[in-house]
């Protein structure tokens, strides 16, 4: 374990430049702040869950099928995003772009089913103004959905840059950071899956 600072030929490209290393470390710290942000939304949601006013109870409208489709789309997209970074580290630009495009497709699929679900809830008489509980639901799940939407634009732009400039220490650090962001969105979804959907259905039926 000598202190060879850089340029072990095995060091991934994204860690080769000082700015790449600092950006990645800084992004990890940003993710810590994102965790705190989502925690406040989860707290709000969980406190307001029983306050359903005259609207439907949360668990009443949740459907297993739609939930599983969304969950598997996002989970698989997190996996393919990991494969994209794996390909990047083998300096395979084509593999990187292919897996990232698959990731974006799955992300779009997720958004499609999420929007369908929101429309279904609204059709059933539960919109963001129906009750405190549904406000909490739409703000929490909607903030996650907005993050996914932003992620799709961000990844697309980074991919365009990779296609134009190839893999450099700068572009590969950007790809790596977007991959952290994308995986993080799946982590948030795991907790939405558990705390919102599963818990909502358990409380309603059990």
């Amino acid at each position: 374990m000598a202190h060879a600072e850089t340029h072990d030929p095995n060091t991934p490209l994204e860690y080769r430049s000082e700015i790449g290393r600092l950006n990645i470390l800084g992004f990890w710290i940003f993710l810590g702040a994102e965790i705190a942000l989502f925690a406040t939304l989860f707290a709000t949601y969980m406190v307001l869950t029983p306050r359903i006013a005259d609207g439907p109870a949360l668990g009443e409208l949740f459907e297993v099928k739609s939930l599983l489709i969304q969950t598997f789309l996002l989970l698989t997209s997190s996996f393919t995003c990991g494969l994209a970074v794996h390909e990047m580290r083998r300096h395979n630009v084509k593999g990187l772009i292919t897996w990232m495009v698959v990731t974006l497709g799955l992300g779009l699929g997720f958004l499609y089913f999420e929007i369908q679900e929101f429309l279904h809830f609204i059709h059933e008489g539960a919109n963001i103004g129906t009750s405190a509980a549904w406000s909490g639901f739409f703000v929490l799940v909607g903030t996650h959905g907005a993050h996914v939407t932003f992620g799709i634009f961000w990844v697309t732009m980074v991919l365009i840059q990779v296609a134009k400039r190839g893999l450099t220490p700068a572009t590969s650090a950007k790809v790596f950071i977007t991959s952290l962001y994308w995986h993080f969105l799946d982590v948030v979804w795991i907790f939405i899956f558990t705390a919102v959907y599963l818990m909502g259905m358990v409380m309603h039926h059990g």
Binding site: W28, I35, A36, A39, A43
Partner: peptide, 18 residues
């Protein structure tokens, strides 16, 4: 350390609020 601290903050915010 940062992620563990964030997880701690999240748990305090959620469980504490509820």
């Amino acid at each position: 350390g940062n992620i563990l601290f964030a997880a701690f903050v999240a748990i305090v915010i959620v469980i504490g609020s509820v």
